[in-house]
C-alpha cells in the first residue's frame, strides 16, 4: 500500500502548484446557445443507415467515403469486408454509429473524437491510438499498444490484448475482458485500465498517475507501480463500466487488485533545467 508520509510529490509542492497559462475566458460566454457539436461537425441521424463494401477500396478511399456519408447525414454505417486493412476509420470527429464486419489491421480507428464503433473481428497494433472521445468495442482479440496515448473515451476489447496496452495514455478507460501482455499501462499519465484476466510482467512500469484494476494474477509489478485500496466508489464505478462494456456481469470484485503510481519517479521538474542547459 502507498506510504502516505514523506511522499516525493508532497515535498515537491506540486499539490500547491500555481499553474499559469493562457486565459481563455475572453472567447467564452457561458450563456451561449445550447450546442453539442464541434463547429463544422455534420448533423447526422442515427436512424439513417447505409452499408459500404470495402473489398476494392483503399484505406484512404474508405475514409473519404465515410466523411462524405456523414456530410449526407448518415448516422449509422456498416463496413463490410474490411479484410484487415490498416488505418481504417481514422480521424472521425463526429458522432457516428460505425460497424466493421470483420477485422482491422494496424492503427484502426485512430484519433477519433466521438463515434461509437463496433468491430466484430480482431484488430492489429495501436488500435484507437490517440482516441479523444467515443466508444470502441472489439469482439475478439487486439494486438500490442492497444489504446496507445488515448486521451478519453471507452476502449473495450472483449478478448485478450498484447503488450504495452495503454502506453502513455493520458485519459479515458481501457477495458479488457481477457488477459493483457507485458508492460500494461507503461508510462501512463492519467486514465483507467481494467483487465478482468491476468496481467503480464512489469505492470504499470514508470506510470506517472492513473489507475489500473486487475481481476486475475499479476506476473510482476513495474517500477513505481504499487497496490492501493479498492474503495466502495471504485466498485460501483467498475460495475457501471463493465455494464457499458457488456462484459463481466458475474465478476467477483473482491478479487480485483488496484494499482497506482507510487509517485517516486516525479523528478521531471528537477531534471528539466539541467537537461535544457545540456541541450543548449
Amino acid at each position: 500500500m502507498a506510504n502516505l508520509k514523506n511522499s516525493k510529490s508532497k515535498s515537491m509542492g506540486l499539490h500547491k502548484e500555481v499553474l499559469t497559462g493562457r486565459t481563455q475566458q475572453v472567447f467564452f460566454n457561458p450563456e451561449e446557445a445550447e450546442n453539442f457539436f464541434y463547429y463544422g461537425a455534420h448533423d447526422v441521424n442515427f436512424n439513417k443507415r447505409t452499408e459500404i463494401d470495402a473489398l476494392d477500396l483503399t484505406a484512404a478511399q474508405l475514409n473519404d467515403k465515410l466523411h462524405s456519408l456523414m456530410k449526407e447525414g448518415y448516422g449509422s454505417v456498416v463496413v463490410k469486408n474490411p479484410q484487415g486493412k490498416h488505418s481504417l476509420g481514422v480521424g472521425i470527429l463526429n458522432k457516428l454509429n460505425l460497424i466493421f464486419e470483420g477485422s482491422l489491421g494496424y492503427f484502426g480507428v485512430g484519433s477519433i473524437d466521438g463515434p461509437v464503433v463496433r468491430i466484430t473481428g480482431r484488430v492489429g497494433w495501436s488500435c484507437a491510438e490517440n482516441m479523444m472521445a467515443g466508444k470502441v468495442v472489439i469482439e475478439k482479440n487486439a494486438g500490442s499498444c492497444f489504446g496507445a496515448a488515448i486521451r478519453g473515451g471507452d476502449l473495450i476489447c472483449k478478448g485478450s490484448v498484447g503488450a504495452r496496452t495503454g502506453i502513455d495514455m493520458k485519459g479515458g478507460t481501457i477495458i479488457v475482458g481477457g488477459d493483457a501482455g507485458a508492460f500494461t499501462g507503461f508510462m501512463m499519465q492519467r486514465g483507467r485500465i481494467i483487465v478482468l484476466g491476468d496481467a503480464g510482467i512489469n505492470l504499470g512500469d514508470s506510470m506517472y498517475d492513473g489507475t489500473i484494476f486487475i481481476g486475475g494474477k499479476i506476473k510482476s509489478f513495474g517500477s513505481d507501480a504499487i497496490k492501493a485500496k479498492v474503495t466502495s466508489e471504485d466498485i460501483s464505478w467498475l460495475k457501471r463500466k463493465l455494464k457499458v462494456a457488456e462484459i463481466g456481469s458475474n465478476f467477483d470484485f473482491s478479487k480485483m487488485t488496484k494499482v497506482v503510481a507510487g509517485k517516486k519517479l516525479w523528478n521531471y521538474d528537477a531534471l528539466e533545467p539541467s537537461e535544457k542547459k545540456g541541450a543548449i
Partner: peptide, 28 residues
C-alpha cells in the same frame, strides 16, 4: 440535465471523455 442531454445526443452510455474533466486552478 445539460450533461444528460449531451450524452444522449452523442449516443453514449455515460460521461465518456468527461470522466477525466475536473475543476482545477489557474493562477489561484
Amino acid at each position: 440535465p445539460f450533461l444528460k442531454k449531451y450524452i444522449e445526443q452523442m449516443g453514449w452510455d455515460d460521461l465518456n471523455w468527461l470522466e477525466d474533466v475536473h475543476m482545477g486552478y489557474e493562477e489561484g
